[in-house]
Design a protein around this nucleic acid. Structure first.
Lengths: 210, 210
DNA sequence: GTCTACAGGATTGTTAACATTCTGCCGTTC
DNA sequence: GAACGGCAGAATGTTAACAATCCTGTAGAC
């Protein structure tokens, strides 16, 4: 299997390799205890996923995502996740509803305890479960990829003061709509949530023009 | 460069390799006059693009897309291309407007002469130009990929009786909105268009349950 | 002092051979 | 006659060596 691809992807997403870092084939082959061919394969795959950049005869680096690109990624996520939310509102079972409510409760306590890290994980979990519940494999796959691409910028959001409180309410609204089985409301709530993320990215971008 | 990847992709999209066909590394290496490694690289890339399926120790085949998957693909396209249409309505220049109108005129004559093949090409051209005008690289990339994935099913639509006439009007509505600079109307027109495509796919799928 | 030419090292790209795995066929056995 | 086992062929997976390319640092010319 190309387990190497997932290992390398995870290491990039976890920040083990930072944007701009060179990805040397020999070094990676040694690190993951495999041949250069396997590394090469992984680099090609992650390149078409948009996580890695490769230049002819010059090797691979971890792709750098600009703020404007992060905004575009989030816009694409916005429309796709709204589609997912609508489908989830239609498809989710009673057990799903219960699970979603539990996640919201856990998020609430995480915000109360100011546990940014926990909140981030719950955030990702909630979105992932909604994707799974929607049964929309295509949209789910695309969104998962988009989230990976912008992972670094997402991280910035989490540590923004007062951000989690807003975010929590937005997520609660999404879950309420899904539990109520209201497709349109679920889509609207998701759009609202991600437009607020875009808003924050925009403000951060404007504050950092150089 | 991995020119092999684009060559193989084009050959799959043009139907040179049909869904389900085996893609043997040695044979492809001979056909494209390159080594197995280059073929391997292309197969990995096209696998993550969703065009090829690879199984451990069993080789690669051209991915088969079911009707339900084609519908999901078109749903995802629908929301993404609506986003693109809105951006295009905001960004397009006067020259862009003129070009779009020319394309619509050419489509009109193609429909009049019953030139299904020409119409298909113009259709693809119109959508591609809108993507480019929007300046939304992320959405453009995703849509291009989604179009490739469902290419085979798109072909079926083109030869459907009476379909081009409807399609032409829908495209004209999109262009009108873009030329008018009306973002919301452009998005709506694009959604309408692709929902009609989904409708056709649905009907075709229902007629072919086995 | 700056610029150019060139050599050396480092890294990617390519090729070929070998190892492993799967598949289909054939013969044996019950 | 059906089932099991093994063998041969084909295809993929892996490794290692070689070739081509790019970067860096140094020496020499002006």
């Amino acid at each position: 299997m190309d387990t190497i691809t997932t290992e390398l992807r995870d290491d990039i997403l976890s920040g083990q390799f930072a944007p701009g870092d060179r990805l040397l084939e020999i070094q990676l082959a040694e690190q993951y205890n495999c041949g250069r061919a396997a590394v090469r394969s992984a680099l090609v795959a992650l390149t078409t996923e948009g996580l890695v950049e490769r230049e002819e005869n010059r090797g691979a680096t971890v792709r750098r995502i600009s703020i404007t690109e992060a905004i575009q990624i989030t816009q694409a996520r916005s429309v796709l996740e709204s589609l997912i939310a609508a489908q989830a509102a239609r498809e989710a079972t009673n057990e799903d509803h219960a699970e979603l409510r539990v996640i919201i409760e856990q998020m609430r306590t995480a915000v109360g305890n100011d546990e940014g890290n926990d909140y981030s994980k719950l955030n990702a979990l909630l979105h992932r479960r909604l994707r799974e519940m929607s049964g929309h494999e295509i949209a789910a796959e695309l969104v998962a990829n988009l989230r990976n691409r912008a992972a670094h910028h997402q991280y910035r959001l989490a540590v923004m003061p007062g951000r989690s409180a807003d975010s929590l309410e937005q997520h609660a609204a999404i879950v309420d709509a899904v539990v109520a089985g209201d497709e349109a409301a679920a889509a609207r709530a998701m759009t609202t949530h991600l437009e607020s993320v875009i808003e924050v990215l925009h403000r951060w971008g404007d504050a950092n023009v150089r």
